[in-house]
C-alpha cells in the first residue's frame, strides 16, 4: 500500500504515479495532502510537502484530481491529512468533499482518539473510513479504544518516531501487531520505516497490509530532475520488487 505526496511536482504526475502503482498491484493508495507543519514526518516527506506548497497547491485542486482518478482505478484512495486542514475546511465540508469525489476515507495523524469523536461521527454518517493510528507507546487499553473507534483499517506505526526509511524494523513489532490483530476484526496495516524487501518478507505474515511512504516519495522526487517516464518506471519497478517478495511467500 503506497503513500504518495499530492502535487510533487504537480498533480498530473501524482495521478500518473497512482495509476502506475495500482496497475502494478497496489491494493490501495494513501495520498498525502501537503501541510506546512507536519510534525510526524521525516525529511523526505517534509521536503516533498514544502515543494508542493511552494507551487501553490490547494486542497480543492487535489480533491478534484483524485475525483477524476478514483473511478479509473481498481483500488480505494484515502487521504492522509492534518487536522489543521480539516478544521479550517470544516469537518463536514471536508467529509462531504471526499464522499463526493469517491475517496474512501482519511488518516489524520495529529488527531488522537481523545479528540476524534466529532470527526468519527461525521465519517460514520457518510460511510467514510477514519483510519486511526496505534504506536509502540500506546497502552493496550488505549489500543482497544482506538480499534473501537476506527474504521477501514488500523494503522500500526512500527516505531516511536517520524516517517522515514529505516534499515531494521523493531524486534517487538511482530508480537505487538499479532496481539492487536487478535483483538479486532479490522485489518491491521503496518507503516513508518518500511522500505526494503527484507522488511516485507518479515512483516507480510504478521500484518494485513504494509504501507510504504518515504521510499516512494523519494523516488517520485527524481521526476523533478530525471524524465517523468523514467521516474514513473522506477517507482513502479520498486513496488513490483516489494510485491514479488509477498507473492513468493
Amino acid at each position: 500500500m503506497p503513500f504518495v505526496t499530492a502535487g510533487d511536482p504537480d498533480l498530473e504526475f501524482t495521478s500518473a504515479v497512482i495509476e502506475e502503482l495500482v496497475a502494478r498491484g497496489a491494493s490501495m493508495c494513501e495520498v498525502g495532502i501537503p501541510y506546512s507543519d507536519p510534525i510526524a514526518d521525516g525529511q523526505v516527506i517534509q521536503e516533498s510537502y514544502t515543494r508542493a506548497l511552494s507551487r501553490g497547491i490547494k486542497v480543492s485542486d487535489i480533491l478534484q484530481t483524485l475525483g477524476q482518478l478514483a473511478p479509473r482505478i481498481n483500488g480505494p484512495l484515502v487521504t492522509m491529512v492534518s487536522h489543521a486542514i480539516i478544521y479550517r475546511h470544516g469537518m463536514e465540508r471536508y467529509a462531504d468533499a471526499l464522499q463526493d469525489k469517491g475517496i474512501a476515507g482519511m488518516i489524520v495523524p495529529d488527531l488522537p482518539v481523545d479528540e476524534s469523536d466529532g470527526l468519527a461521527a461525521v465519517c460514520k454518517t457518510r460511510d467514510l473510513s477514519l483510519i486511526q493510528l496505534v504506536t509502540p507507546t500506546t497502552s493496550r487499553d488505549r489500543a482497544l479504544k482506538i480499534a473501537d473507534t476506527s474504521s477501514g483499517f488500523l494503522y500500526y506505526v512500527s516505531v516511536a518516531g517520524i516517517t522515514g526509511e529505516r534499515s531494521v524494523v523493531p524486534q517487538e513489532l511482530q508480537e505487538r501487531v499479532g496481539w492487536l490483530r487478535e483483538q479486532t476484526s479490522l485489518p491491521v496495516c503496518i507503516g513508518f520505516g518500511i522500505s526494503q524487501p527484507e522488511h516485507v518478507r518479515v512483516l507480510c505474515q504478521v500484518a494485513d497490509g504494509l504501507i510504504v511512504g518515504s521510499a516512494i516519495v523519494r523516488r517520485m522526487a527524481d521526476a523533478a530532475t530525471d524524465s517523468r517516464d523514467q521516474a514513473l518506471r522506477q517507482v513502479g519497478d520498486y513496488l513490483s520488487s516489494l510485491l514479488a517478495v509477498m507473492d513468493a511467500r
Partner: peptide, 20 residues
C-alpha cells in the same frame, strides 16, 4: 482535564506523543 480553555486548547498531536 482535557486541556480546554472554553473551546480552546486540547491536544492535537500524533498518538506517539500522547504517552509522554
Amino acid at each position: 482535564e482535557t486541556g480546554r480553555y472554553g473551546k480552546f486548547g486540547g491536544r492535537y498531536v500524533p498518538e506517539t506523543l500522547v504517552y509522554a
